[in-house]
Write a protein that binds this DNA or RNA. Sequence first.
DNA 1: CGGCCAATTGATTAAACTCAATCTGCGTGG
DNA 2: CCACGCAGATTGAGTTTAATCAATTGGCCG
Lengths: 250, 250
Amino acid sequence: MQKGIATDFKPAETSSPLVRKLGALCLLSEEEIDFLEGLQNNTLKVDRGLDFIEEGGDLRTTFIVIEGWAARYCLLSDGRRQILSYALPGDILGLHVNFRATATYSASALTPLKLAAVDPRRIIEISQKFPIIASGLSWCTAREYAILGDQAIRLGRLSARQRLAHLFLELWHRLNLLKSNNDNWLEIPMTQRDLADTLGMSLVHTNRSLKSLRDVDLISVTKNQVRLNDIKALIELSEFNAEHLREFRV
Amino acid sequence: MQKGIATDFKPAETSSPLVRKLGALCLLSEEEIDFLEGLQNNTLKVDRGLDFIEEGGDLRTTFIVIEGWAARYCLLSDGRRQILSYALPGDILGLHVNFRATATYSASALTPLKLAAVDPRRIIEISQKFPIIASGLSWCTAREYAILGDQAIRLGRLSARQRLAHLFLELWHRLNLLKSNNDNWLEIPMTQRDLADTLGMSLVHTNRSLKSLRDVDLISVTKNQVRLNDIKALIELSEFNAEHLREFRV
DNA sequence: CGGCCAATTGATTAAACTCAATCTGCGTGG
DNA sequence: CCACGCAGATTGAGTTTAATCAATTGGCCG
């Protein structure tokens, strides 16, 4: 297979989210795309609300999210919950499972979920046979790490309103990597309870902080949708740094 | 070189911290040890207080900490600072620099620092030639990720006293992987200002929370040293989960 | 219609922040 | 040798933010 110009191999809209995500970062050959699609043949469904990874449990499978949203979280003994991050279509859970068989977090389905279960040995195969994909996965790892760092900044140093704005901006940017029509609407499946557990706040305070963002017209909220009315102002308010999510610099 | 039994290749006390850290997890051959030591030939010193990585700046070097402590942090526009994590001897900064040339955080020396500067291309070489080391580095990545997750739990869901206890336990466990005499003393170079910026609290509140831990005799504090007087009680208080830091399960 | 989950609002309490001093140990220049 | 300056630690007082407790409301589904 000859190497073509970029547009030749631009992943189609019908490609899997993982291929779209990696394809937005680097030029994938048809062979690479085929391999990535093949990785995701073994799919399973998870009902909304169900856990598919449990903290402390054995984890011997790598999961790729194909459809829906998942949340990585930890529970404390008194029932408090901290959501660490969200996994969106194209995100990978347990990429390093070869080297850490016990899960350090739980993961549950925020929506009905379609996952690909991947034998982690195939991840090792990637680094041997598909260096470009391996680079892409390394980038994913670095990106996940930066996202978790942003989560720490939110929790440690931002006010309640800033946390909400910052999180919405993160999710908006991440989703824009997957779909092309990026208007200012953000479809989020989380309840206010979920948002509270993500942002380290109480449910009541989350509700009030959302209201205060609505009151100054920075966001509009309808059933499971948030409209970011003024991206620039939200970025300024929350000190959001889109660089953390950006693609390869090369 | 013939393969020996485990003790044959147990890294000496004089080995580099990285070798000691990886050696505590898996059996390294002499060749692997030599390679890892060779990686760290190009060293540099950083004075206490100086930055050696700057957020937004170009990052084209991987750093291995040989001596001293560093802090990864981000600054907000109004001067607030969030320390994301600490890098201890044996820790690696910028492991994924091949795929992300712009730093998403700054790093500064908490103590006089001795670093090894590694050409990131040598990291790629590892995955081709030294699969065991590559596994070890993958484990490091997964561990750093779990550590950052713990940081998010501290910031999001723990009280001030819990945060302090939890952080001390983490650092104590991490240091114990490096040195064999693990008494209950913890040498930390951070000021209360640093602790506050790590734990998302004000300086004053950090001071008072430390005092309250001293008052109930859970810790003792002297100049740059913390004694964990009752590890079990501290673990219970702070809901610390040592599993997150544990070695390979294999 | 009843039940349930999520969202909203009010009132009170508790945790943590800010501002402002003071204190302490340490090194340095006179 | 001592006064001075400085960084880090400590304490007090008042304010703000966010948590908690307690209802109430709104939609949706069986």
